[in-house]
Design a protein around this nucleic acid. Structure first.
Lengths: 147, 147
DNA sequence: GGGAGATACTTCGAGACTCGAACGACTGGG
DNA sequence: CCCAGTCGTTCGAGTCTCGAAGTATCTCCC
């Protein structure tokens, strides 16, 4: 290899992400979603406690106004609802609707299907995952859904 | 693991990318660059033949008008020059200036430094790279610089 | 040679995403 | 009660991205 390892690794991650993004833009548009809305939808795990806006914003590495904007679009499509938190009435939890839950799993299916990662063997997927988990473990952020 | 392998892998790639992006936005801004301009700069390998606009657009998975826009900004900062191709006068090659070459290596250094991947051991970097190379090899796109 | 069609790039206008600043609502501690 | 801090929203601006249209040039085939 004629390249610095870390540099190549950063580049490779970037490339895989860009390819995935390019490949899913079309299919997502057919469901009335964009990359931003799909990301937010993905971040809402129906099996977990509905997270507050702030929690989701942290997960998505974006700020509060941005998440408000994205949540508006999801709500307008009937995919999420803002539920006031009785424990803290400043806070609102983002809850998936039935339709939202269904669209979310459709999104995950579509994204995985179009991702170049799906060309890998299960062994490679497992190895990849084990390495990336180390990375994510080091700098914990608003921990994200796992399913 | 309570999660489908490919789903988790796609998510992990996404998470690493988002963290990297969030971490480098500040440092890049200090150099007068944005994510978009830094990506374009990264895609120009000074050791290779200067690529045409179209070639770079393909590398970046964006379209011609977008690259025109980004190239304008790089040119305005004195980092690249548009050099007419004598073989095809429709085409213009993007050539790094001396300053551009210097800023490019500074960008790569900064990005790697701030990437969560830099927390990995060299062995893990190598393993990661070997897996991701398989992915990229399957669906070749405008092949990118390697250094 | 000459014309038709394709290609490379640019410009223009619109849309989507992101952010900082400012605001109202609420909480918790003095 | 008061005050500082937090959560969410709205507003305005900036950036990125794209499709449509236009110009210049190339290629191919008659």
């Amino acid at each position: 290899m004629n390249e610095d390892g870390p540099v190549a690794a950063v580049r490779a991650i970037h490339e895989v992400f860009m390819r995935t993004d390019a490949a899913i833009t079309g299919p997502l548009a057919e469901m009335g979603l964009t990359t931003a809305t799909a990301q937010a939808l993905w971040a809402l795990d129906p099996d977990d406690e509905p997270p507050s806006m702030k929690t989701v914003a942290t997960r998505l590495h974006c700020n509060a106004p941005n998440l408000s904007f994205v949540a508006d679009q999801l709500a307008a499509r009937g995919l999420v609802e803002r539920v006031p938190d009785p424990r803290d009435r400043r806070s609102r939890a983002l809850v998936l609707t039935a339709k939202g839950e269904q669209v979310r799993s459709q999104v995950m299916r579509t994204v995985v299907e179009h991702s170049p990662l799906s060309a890998l063997e299960p062994d490679d997927i497992a190895a990849l995952l084990s390495i990336l988990d180390k990375v994510v473990a080091v700098t914990p952020r608003g921990s994200a859904p796992t399913s």
